[in-house]
């Protein structure tokens, strides 16, 4: 099945199939000991395509974190988002890690990072150089510094231009969980 999916992806790329609007980056790594091919598919969006991740109207709570592999405070807080994701995923909470890595770093740094850290939360990449256009659409008060996080559900949304530890992050999330 996995092979079939890989095959499908390759077909998709070679035929420039872009119906979901997301570009796909595939990295193939083969080790010398065995010839197992591990591949990781990274979905890359421009802001227009990405915007739907900030406006979902279902019953879930979304925790959207903007980060990059080069951002030290982001890397430091990433485990707390992972912890939150595993602790609350059966409570209709979804963590989304939005990488702002440079496109030329996707294969060299971002994908190896995701694989090495075995990130369980969904990771996507946002690649849109027109930052002055889209940053205010994420939040009017965002200066553009990362890390930055949005927690939202269909009723309300809260933006944070700051770093978190797990307790702080969980406390913010709990404001969204109705008892």
């Amino acid at each position: 099945m996995k092979r079939f999916l890989t095959f499908l992806c390759v077909i998709c790329i070679t035929s420039a199939c872009n119906d979901k609007g997301a570009k796909e980056v595939i990295v193939e790594q083969s080790t010398k000991e065995d010839s197992l091919i591990s591949d990781y598919q990274l979905d890359v969006y421009n802001f227009n395509e990405f915007e739907s991740f900030l406006t979902k109207k279902d019953d879930k709570i979304y925790v959207v974190n903007f980060w990059a592999t080069w951002c030290a405070p982001c890397i430091k807080e990433l485990p707390y988002f992972e912890e939150l994701n595993s602790a609350y995923k059966d409570k209709d909470v979804e963590v989304l890690l939005v990488s702002l890595d440079f496109p030329k770093q996707y294969e060299k740094k971002l994908i190896p990072f995701i694989e090495n850290k075995k990130l369980k939360s969904k990771v996507i990449a946002l690649d849109d150089p027109k930052m002055n256009d889209w940053i205010p659409k994420v939040d009017e008060n965002w200066s553009g510094a990362i890390p930055a996080t949005i927690i939202y559900n269909k009723d309300k949304s809260q933006f944070y231009e700051r770093s978190f530890n797990f307790e702080e992050l969980e406390a913010e999330l709990k404001q969204f969980i109705t008892p």
């Binding site: 030290a72 405070p73 930052m131 002055n132 940053i135 205010p136 553009g144 510094a145 990362i146």
Partner: peptide, 10 residues
């Protein structure tokens, strides 16, 4: 006033 992504000041 314009905005851009940047690294937070350490």
């Amino acid at each position: 006033k314009t905005r851009a992504i940047g690294c937070s000041i350490k």
